[in-house]
């Protein structure tokens, strides 16, 4: 049985369904991200696990024990809040020590563990500093140390990095992942940032409007999105209309002037979904989707292209390998491997 089990978890506010029948099995030591746009119910889900919000229905089991009936103060979970919610009248060390005091840990052991926790998050020299005198990143680390020092069964993080600037956020992502690996605490992270979720997690739970769209490893969800929503939310994707016809054990797909052979048995009007980085440039041979380069933007390690084709706009991302690249107003052909193209029926059948 999994370490943490959410079964048919549900929360409604009046008629409004904030979380709809969410089921999730978390293994011990796993790093899970709840990913979705703002208002999709991520925080609500996390707060139900933490015990701050009472579920309307469903069960939460930790190591086989029911959590729902348990007070938040008894659950033994570490929580890092988006606002950090540090105690402003206590120093960093006192903040971290608070949970240990509640557990009645002896003075000597407490001091030792507080010191170790602050060192773990790289704040060894800041023990006597008050939170209001620390930067956002430092406060964030204190909050993390405070949650980890009690050796929680599960670590719950609600958008912990969203108040940091982009560069610091990237650093903290790496650090967070490293700390989680070191300590081995089962972790649930809430985020609306798809790159953060993909960078950190073992598995991602993509949510939308209170429902789970897909639960999968980051690469799996990215390469094989279960729904159009997931495809659109995890990175950019091109959605192109075309037609498909099964012909002698093979599916012939036609998108404007381009032709592909696919193994997926599908017939009629289709929508093909292709990631921008899977598309390559080629010459304008017959049977290739052709277009005109409208804009190209240099982004250091890669180029971003917008191509006008008969099937509409297509975005292309190419690595900057130093070779000559098509310029604006060039006519180009576009190719991709059939397996890089997800096909679905245009009328919504799957």
């Amino acid at each position: 049985m999994s370490f943490l089990v959410l079964r048919e978890l549900k929360k409604t506010y009046g008629d409004f369904v904030a979380v709809e029948a969410l089921s999730l099995d978390v293994q011990r030591g796993e790093f899970i991200s709840l990913l979705g746009p703002s208002g999709c119910g991520k925080t609500t889900t996390l707060q139900m696990v933490a015990g701050f919000v009472e579920p309307t229905g469903g069960a939460i089991l930790l190591d086989g024990h029911d959590l729902v009936a348990m007070k938040p103060s008894r659950r033994g979970l570490g929580v890092v809040f988006q606002s950090y919610a540090l105690f402003p009248h206590m120093t960093a060390a006192e903040n971290v020590a608070f949970g240990l005091e509640m557990q009645k840990v002896g003075r000597a052991e407490r001091d030792e563990r507080v010191r170790n926790a602050l060192e773990l998050v790289g704040l060894g020299g800041f023990a006597e500093r008050y939170p209001r005198r620390m930067s956002g990143g430092q406060q964030q680390r204190v909050a993390l140390a405070r949650a980890l020092v009690i050796r929680p069964h599960v670590l719950l993080l609600d958008e912990p990095l969203s108040n940091l600037d982009a560069k610091l956020r990237e650093e903290m992502q790496i650090e967070l992942r490293q700390i989680q690996r070191t300590v081995g605490t089962t972790t649930i992270l809430v985020t609306h940032d798809q790159s953060e979720a993909m960078a950190l997690s073992d598995r991602i739970v993509v949510m939308n409007g209170g429902r789970v769209e897909q639960i999968a490893a980051p690469q799996e969800a990215y390469e094989r999105p279960a729904t159009p929503f997931v495809a659109g939310f995890l990175g950019k994707t091109n959605e192109l209309s075309g037609t498909a016809r099964v012909e002698g054990g093979e599916t012939r797909v036609v998108i404007a002037d381009g032709r592909w052979a696919s193994r997926r048995p599908i017939d009629g009007a289709v929508i093909a979904s292709v990631r921008p980085e899977k598309i390559a440039f080629a010459d304008c041979a017959a049977g290739r989707l052709t277009g005109l380069v409208k804009t190209r933007i240099f982004q250091g390690n890669h180029w971003l292209y917008r191509i006008e084709t008969l099937a509409g706009q297509v975005f292309v991302i190419r690595q900057n390998g130093g070779e000559p690249m098509p310029a604006e107003n060039d006519k180009v052909g576009l190719t991709w491997r059939p397996e890089d193209m997800a096909l679905r029926a245009a009328d919504g059948r799957r």
Binding site: R74, F87, H89, M102
Partner: peptide, 27 residues
């Protein structure tokens, strides 16, 4: 006072009275 601060204290194992005395009152 941060609206989540009482939840933070609760998650660290503090009961209502302790939270009031040690977290809310000093603030």
């Amino acid at each position: 006072v941060d609206p989540q601060i009482e939840n933070a204290a609760a998650s660290l194992g503090a009961g209502h009275f302790t939270t009031l005395r040690r977290v809310i009152f000093p603030q």
